[in-house]
């Protein structure tokens, strides 16, 4: 588990150097936190019923991870390795409380829907994973880039899953009716032709299956990702 921090004096490199850009682009595809590292699956199942929730969840995770990575990275030489998990937890917990309060203040209805899941960002494996694996051993600049990459990698999977689940499960996108209305009496659109929403899309197993399909597509495009048995 413990990451050995390399303390060699490296020449100062610009924030958007090739290596740092890779930190952002890698997690989007070939090293995606959800589909490749299989972290943060829990929230991908829980809050992808609607695109709006998934969006705000992604924003919250981006905020917590970006700030948290930078803070941990700045503290990395001061944290005794024995209690590093506790220190990391304190940082995440404070950030999550801030996010929770911000959401409640500015988008109260979303905050109500996300309810406990914002609090559960504390236990999101991606965040602790990045703190342990990256921020503890790297400077604030690259840590920030790493946080950006991982949050965006997390976000696009979340939004993709939420898009299909909301479209096929409720016939809407961001609450706007796409396929028409299924309310009896004022039916319109596809529903008048006998179309029905798929309730299974609302249930968590379907999120798992959609994530699985994304993994399938990803691995059939890039054969290196297929591990041998």
């Amino acid at each position: 588990m413990s990451e050995v921090a390399e303390k060699t004096k490296a020449p100062k490199e610009p924030l958007f150097s090739k290596k740092n850009r890779k930190l952002v682009t890698d997690p989007l595809t070939d090293n995606n936190p959800i589909t490749i590292q299989v972290l943060g699956i829990c929230s991908a199942l829980a809050i992808t019923v609607q695109v709006e929730q998934a969006f705000w969840m992604s924003v919250s995770v981006l905020f917590v991870l970006a700030l948290g990575n930078v803070i941990i990275s700045m503290l990395r030489n001061m944290i005794p390795s024995r209690i590093r998990i506790i220190v990391q937890l304190v940082v995440v917990a404070s950030l999550v409380i801030i996010v929770d309060q911000l959401l409640a203040a500015f988008v109260p209805d979303v905050s109500e829907k996300l309810s406990v899941f914002v609090g559960l960002i504390i236990t999101n494996c991606i965040i602790m994973g990045r703190f342990e694996a990256f921020a503890m051993g790297n400077k604030p600049g690259p840590s920030f880039m790493d946080a950006l990459g991982n949050s965006f990698g997390y976000a696009w999977i979340l939004l993709a899953v939420a898009f299909f689940r909301e479209l096929l499960g409720s016939g809407t996108f961001w609450g706007i009716e796409i396929f028409g209305s299924s309310i009896p009496g004022s039916k319109w659109g596809l529903y008048t032709m006998g179309y029905e929403n798929n309730n299974m899309m609302i249930l968590p197993p379907m999120a798992l299956i959609i994530v699985g399909i994304i993994i399938w597509i990803q691995r059939s495009r890039n054969k290196e990702l297929i591990e041998d048995h």
Partner: peptide, 10 residues
């Protein structure tokens, strides 16, 4: 099972 959970009323 897909239909059972997806379209219970049908």
């Amino acid at each position: 099972a897909f239909l059972f959970f997806g379209y219970p009323t049908s």
